[in-house]
Simulated assay, not measured.
Amino acid sequence: MNILIVNDDGILEPGIEVLAKQLAPLGNIYVVAPETHQSGQGHGITINEPLKVKDYGNLYGATKALSVLGKPADCTRIAVGLLGVDFDLCVSGVNSGLNVGSDVLYSGTVAAATEALILGIPAIAVSGPKKSLHMAEKSIYKLVKYLLENNVLGKEYILNINYPSSKFEMFLGVKWTTQGKHHHAARFNQVGENLYETVYELIDTNEDDNSDVTAFRTGYLSITPLFENRTHNDLLQILENQKQLNVTAIYDNIIE
């Protein structure tokens, strides 16, 4: 297999080293990651300036390692566009910090994996608290191998994997989960003239028992399938079936 390893924390962060070394028995490892920390960049891409690429040789034992002075999704694009490799799998992470609930909307880790999906490559995003990295180091090889052997990966979704809170020495089990809420509120502290520091505070939300957030809190490794297409087909059908929301009714009411 040809395996692309990406992240959003940066090419010299320990999480990506764990992935590169632990997944090496599965195939040829290629590492392409941001040169600098890019957490919270979401699925942004660079469109108005050139991307600077640095060759890191065989860093972490990889067949090839590159850094990109750009965003996480840029890294996936550079890997596919420059390396000339047919990748069988992309694994993004291990992110230093969880990516559950609404975090996935902001996560560069999830975005780098989603970009691989867009480019036709089965992908996994892996995250967990920094103090939980040992959990991934002990288990990620067997987990990815098991998922591959059982044909769980596809080209319609990514698998978003999160290790649990660091208050647990090791995860207690594995759960298939839904995306929870995990909302944050922003508070802005003025630290200078026209200069504000952002402080994020977790909002107390009711989480479903089968959500990734609940799994994180209760000591379970969560695996959540995430789709690129965010259309809610059932709701779409409900809206179309309502007489006052029928497309003809809407058209007649906005066109004179």
Results as ranks from 00 to 15, higher is better:
residue 90 C to R: 08
residue 98 L to Y: 13
residue 78 I to E: 12
residue 121 I to K: 01
residue 92 S to Q: 09
residue 114 T to Y: 00
residue 72 P to H: 03
residue 99 N to V: 15
residue 92 S to E: 08
residue 113 A to M: 09
residue 101 G to I: 04
residue 108 G to I: 04
residue 77 R to K: 15
residue 123 A to W: 11
residue 117 L to I: 07
residue 110 V to I: 10
residue 88 D to G: 11
residue 107 S to T: 07
residue 62 A to Y: 10
residue 101 G to V: 03
residue 97 G to N: 12
residue 122 P to H: 11
residue 65 A to M: 01
residue 97 G to M: 13
residue 89 L to P: 00
residue 99 N to D: 15
residue 113 A to D: 03
residue 77 R to G: 13
residue 84 G to C: 03
residue 103 D to H: 12
residue 74 D to Q: 02
residue 100 V to N: 08
residue 117 L to M: 06
residue 92 S to C: 11
residue 115 E to G: 06
residue 94 V to M: 06
residue 119 L to D: 04
residue 65 A to F: 01
residue 104 V to C: 09
residue 69 L to F: 00
residue 80 V to K: 14
residue 112 A to H: 08
residue 66 L to F: 08
residue 67 S to G: 13
residue 107 S to Q: 07
residue 104 V to I: 12
residue 109 T to L: 08
residue 117 L to A: 07
residue 77 R to Q: 13
residue 94 V to R: 01
residue 70 G to Y: 03
residue 99 N to S: 14
residue 113 A to R: 08
residue 83 L to K: 05
residue 117 L to V: 05
residue 76 T to N: 05
residue 96 S to Q: 14
residue 104 V to H: 07
residue 113 A to S: 12
residue 96 S to G: 14
residue 90 C to E: 15
residue 105 L to M: 15
residue 125 A to C: 05
residue 76 T to P: 09
residue 65 A to W: 01
residue 73 A to I: 03
residue 101 G to C: 03
residue 73 A to V: 02
residue 75 C to G: 04
residue 68 V to R: 02
residue 93 G to A: 12
residue 79 A to P: 09
residue 70 G to I: 02
residue 122 P to M: 10
residue 122 P to I: 11
residue 124 I to G: 02
residue 82 L to W: 13
residue 74 D to P: 01
residue 82 L to A: 14
residue 72 P to T: 04
residue 82 L to P: 02
residue 127 S to Y: 03
residue 100 V to M: 05
residue 102 S to R: 12
residue 107 S to D: 08
residue 92 S to G: 10
residue 103 D to A: 11
residue 123 A to G: 09
residue 71 K to C: 00
residue 97 G to Q: 12
residue 90 C to M: 14
residue 112 A to S: 15
residue 80 V to M: 09
residue 119 L to Y: 08
residue 103 D to S: 14
residue 103 D to C: 10
residue 92 S to I: 06
residue 122 P to V: 12
residue 81 G to R: 05
residue 87 F to Y: 14
residue 113 A to W: 10
residue 82 L to I: 11
residue 92 S to H: 09
residue 72 P to I: 04
residue 119 L to Q: 12
residue 98 L to Q: 15
residue 88 D to M: 01
residue 115 E to K: 13
residue 126 V to W: 01
residue 114 T to R: 11
residue 77 R to T: 13
residue 64 K to V: 04
residue 91 V to R: 11
residue 100 V to S: 08
residue 100 V to I: 15
residue 125 A to P: 06
residue 104 V to L: 10
residue 119 L to V: 04
residue 85 V to C: 00
residue 84 G to N: 11
residue 73 A to T: 07
residue 65 A to K: 01
residue 81 G to M: 06
residue 75 C to E: 02
residue 81 G to I: 00
residue 71 K to S: 03
residue 64 K to M: 09
residue 71 K to G: 00
residue 79 A to H: 07
residue 108 G to D: 05
residue 118 I to P: 01
residue 125 A to F: 10
residue 75 C to N: 05
residue 110 V to E: 07
residue 113 A to H: 06
residue 125 A to K: 04
residue 67 S to F: 08
residue 96 S to N: 13
residue 118 I to D: 12
residue 79 A to N: 07
residue 89 L to D: 01
residue 63 T to P: 00
residue 79 A to Q: 06
residue 95 N to C: 12
residue 101 G to Q: 01
residue 85 V to E: 00
residue 98 L to R: 15
residue 126 V to D: 01
residue 127 S to D: 00
residue 76 T to V: 10
residue 116 A to H: 03
residue 119 L to M: 15
residue 94 V to I: 15
